[in-house]
């Protein structure tokens, strides 16, 4: 069995662990022209620098707030949708739905950004027109601090839920049909079947994806925020990645960018490790 692992292991060591030497950049005032060894070693200066910037804590909070909401919504929505799709009988419609919900994944945020500005416009946007029929005043979704994070979460879930839905649907197929046959014989309702057969059957995958998504607690989605945010919502929408991007615009500061990346990795690592061991200790369940 080692033989099976070796090709992949070698590739990973070369192409993933090899470049990890570059993490040292986080502790340097790295200048590409000087390389790893001639760049000045400055210890934790890059980290200290980022912490010293005036908005760091606000940005960190924004990132966590947006990311956590995305993680939660990104779990609930696909699970629900895959259960609902599973309840569909007509194969043609079922397959069409599956295909269609995966479509937004292929559109880039550059394109969607333009579309969303139109859809959500307080004066002309279709969403606010609809709210108008319900007697609700127009809402400036992209321009107000108290709406912007939710707009991000909803549009992101909308774009990406098709992806996880596919995984859950695949998980559903691996549930042994004899369970359902037995349940029907016992007279269990559809709801009971879902509750006692389907959900437990999906549980390993649900736990796996939940754990993995915890690693994203500091990833609030650069492309999306970059294409949708604006100075008026910096306060609620500026996240770590957009912040690093703007620092880089003045002068590409590799040290700072790598330091921030390392910080994110360490936090992800911590989150995932903790949940891994919790699952193992409490539920005696190995996630991977």
């Amino acid at each position: 069995m080692h033989l099976m692992v070796i090709p992949g292991l070698i590739l990973v060591l070369i192409y993933h662990y090899g470049p990890m030497a570059g993490i040292t950049i986080a502790f340097q005032k790295f200048i590409p022209a000087k390389g790893f060894f001639d760049s000045k070693w400055i210890g934790l200066e890059n980290f200290r620098y980022v912490m010293s910037l005036p908005d760091t804590w606000q940005i960190l909070w924004n990132t966590v707030y947006i990311a956590v909401m995305k993680i939660v919504a990104g779990l609930i929505v696909p699970i629900t949708v895959s259960l609902l799709i599973n309840e569909m009988g007509k194969a043609l419609i079922k397959r069409s739905v599956q295909t269609l919900i995966y479509l937004p994944h292929f559109l880039s945020w550059v394109i969607l950004g333009g579309i969303l500005i139109d859809l959500l416009s307080p004066s002309q946007g279709i969403v606010n027109q609809f709210l108008g029929y319900l007697g609700i005043e127009p809402i400036y979704f992209l321009g107000l601090d108290n709406w912007f994070p939710y707009t991000l979460v909803i549009s992101d879930v909308w774009k990406e839920f098709g992806f996880s839905t596919i995984v859950y649907l695949a998980a559903l197929t691996s549930i042994n049909p004899t369970f359902y046959e037995a349940a029907i014989v016992d007279g269990a309702s559809r709801w009971k079947q879902t509750l006692y057969i389907t959900l437990p059957g999906m549980m390993p995958i649900i736990i796996l994806l939940t754990t993995l998504s915890l690693g994203n607690v500091l990833n609030a989605g650069f492309d999306q925020v970059f294409n949708l945010y604006s100075p008026q919502v910096y306060k609620s929408g500026d996240i770590i990645d957009t912040f690093v991007y703007r620092i880089g615009l003045v002068d590409a500061q590799y040290g700072v960018a790598t330091a921030v990346g390392l910080f994110k990795s360490v936090v992800s690592f911590f989150m995932i490790t903790v949940s891994y061991y919790l699952a193992y200790r409490l539920a005696n369940y190995r996630i991977f």
Partner: peptide
């Protein structure tokens, strides 16, 4: 671990 850690563009 390779999902979590990366050395960045230049060493890659």
């Amino acid at each position: 671990l390779t999902i979590l850690f990366s050395g960045g563009l230049i060493p890659w």
